[in-house]
Design a protein around this nucleic acid. Structure first.
Lengths: 351, 351
DNA sequence: TGTTAGCACTCATTAACTTCAACTGCTAAT
DNA sequence: ATTAGCAGTTGAAGTTAATGAGTGCTAACA
């Protein structure tokens, strides 16, 4: 049993209005701005029905209506208008990616920055699935008598550089040989395989056991340190711009959640198969007492390889339409990056 | 013209009380908790005099007194009681530094963390004076056909690792030779000298000019990117715990200032000669419209070498006594780090 | 049967007013 | 110089009344 087209129009009207005003919407408002051919009384009847159905709420008897999470759900799934980004917005996005970028970290940082700049919302970006990264090579460089630097190069970029303690009597040549040896052994293996080495690897690396253990320990540290890669947060104070968080109690709950970045990971993930993921309200109640909010994330690929997720986090009342357009356009832009194609060429959307 | 001892006692009473209550202090309160042998009327006379002198303020006529920045100044310079940290606090601090720490970054991160944990204030830590860091060696490692990693090791730790693009036909041996060559040329030079190479260096490095330029470019990037090293922020949401920032306007001003980390640098610096630096209110009005706050920073040395500044940032009404003790104790702890001495040995303070 | 005008009703918000209590400043006595 | 006593000031909290935005319902209408 679907709902009538007119009801859908009304839901859309309520959500659209509420997104900009953050105040209950009255029947008169809807008549004036969306359905001038109906009387406010008729609209009131519909509103009452929609409230009965769980799409709308009244803060108090004599107030207008406010959308529930259900309404937002319907809105983003079906009713939301496609938004076209303005020329200047496109320009801003392109400017973030129009120069050569080599490090995945930087791509993600830029992605987060540009999302925040355009949407005025707090944005997050993260590298997922470190375990499935494929090792290209491993370099071990002696820095001084006591320490060496381990660099693990993967298809997702430089995974991690960390220092390890070494015996003092090992010379540089030793590390060059070791690097080559270990690189060969690990080449084209995934991080996961290295963490659980099979007999072959174990045997192969017996000679460099100390270094080998150190490398595994670095990788394990890294993977277990939240099980995920870096999470980049941008514009966390934007949260305070929304009237929803006008009182300090709520604002703090939100900011504290953001400050504990690692706990955000499970909410950003889970969108690996889907390119766009919208979680509204209870959808993302990972932890007890988590503040109500909405999270929209996209799964980003560069040259066919998934490099991470990025998106926004904000009040349930957010401009989903704009957010989706931005995430979408950034996705297209990123996908074209490595081919060396100019980013200006991919602006052949609808219209 | 100094002020009488009794007046000082009263200022101390007002500040001490205000630090815990954040509410105007009445003459009766002072009598009860600090000066029971005087009548409240006498205290009122003194309070009026101190207000005249600029040390105290009344929010409104029928309210108690609140200390001005002047009063805090006098308090920290002269009146503040020496606080002894509790056993459990000392334990917490020691636990952050009782294992081998090699990277300066990690020391600073830990420092910030422990400061926040104990003071419940937002803390900052930064590496200053990159320019005067002395280069130990420089390593260039070929990662793949197109990129190489440059690692600059200084007396302050690994200054920066960054990738550079390289010509495809250079083999690994080339970089080993180049590393050695460049390392030798730069050894014991400061970053500043490298940024403005003299003729000798220029001549010496003519052979590796491309790499040489790339390295200088990395260093320049790094130094100009705020002119300072990393700034670590810890516990920024602690700001919201203080009643001073109960309204969102003020909270946002503060948080936005913190988010623009780089701008904090000049406020943390300037304490290179002094080991402890307390800036109250207008003392640190770097930018127009900066929220009123106090900043207490310490200059930290490990083995005689300054490694950075760290401290707290919070409302003018903060527990200076505790903050100073904490920063002080951490300073002593850090200073003993490299000698391998147990951190538990340095607990021979007063009492 | 769906739509609409009309009207009574509800309830948050605001302003005006009152009360209350916390302090002070001042005066006069010690 | 100190102090008791008291009048005076003022914000905070509580009360009441007026306001008006918006609804739900009823009865008439197409």
């Amino acid at each position: 049993m679907g709902i009538s087209e007119r009801k859908e129009k009304i839901i859309q009207a309520v959500v659209d209005s509420y997104i900009v005003s953050c105040e209950p919407i009255s029947s008169a408002e809807i008549k004036q701005n969306f359905l001038p051919d109906l009387s406010s009384a008729t609209i009131r009847n519909e509103l009452a029905a929609l409230e009965e159905m769980g799409y709308l709420e009244q803060p108090h008897t004599s107030a207008g209506r406010v959308p529930t999470a259900e309404a937002y759900r319907l809105y983003v799934d079906k009713l939301m208008p496609k938004r076209k980004l303005s020329k200047s917005e496109l320009k801003v996005i392109n400017s973030y990616f129009d120069h050569k970028i080599t490090e995945i970290d930087e791509i993600l940082r830029n992605t987060a920055k540009v999302i925040t700049e355009i949407t005025s919302l707090t944005s997050v970006a993260m590298v997922p699935n470190v375990k499935s990264a494929v090792v290209d090579s491993i370099k071990i460089v002696k820095l001084n008598d006591k320490t060496a630097l381990v660099v693990i190069v993967t298809n997702l970029g430089i995974l991690k550089d960390a220092t390890v303690e070494i015996a003092e009597d090992l010379n540089e040549q030793y590390f060059i040989t070791a690097s080559n040896f270990i690189s060969t052994a690990f080449h084209n293996r995934t991080i996961e395989e290295i963490m659980n080495p099979d007999d072959m690897i174990n045997e192969l690396l017996a000679e460099y056991e100390q270094l080998f253990r150190a490398i595994i320990s670095i990788i394990t540290d890294y993977v277990e340190n939240g099980g995920v890669g870096d999470i980049v947060l941008e514009g966390s104070t934007k949260i305070l711009d929304h009237p929803e968080y006008a009182n300090v109690r709520k604002a703090r709950a939100m900011l504290e959640m953001l400050e504990a970045k690692e706990q955000l990971a499970p909410m950003l993930q889970g969108s690996n198969d889907v390119s766009l993921n919208i979680k509204i309200g209870k959808d993302n109640e990972i932890a007890e007492g988590m503040p109500e909010c909405a999270i929209v994330t996209a799964n980003y690929r560069v040259g066919g390889v998934t490099i991470g997720n990025a998106g926004v986090i904000g009040p349930i009342r957010m401009d989903y339409s704009k957010v989706v357009s931005v995430l979408d356009y950034i996705g297209k832009t990123l996908n074209l990056l490595p081919e060396g194609k100019s980013v200006d060429d991919n602006n052949n959307d609808e219209e």
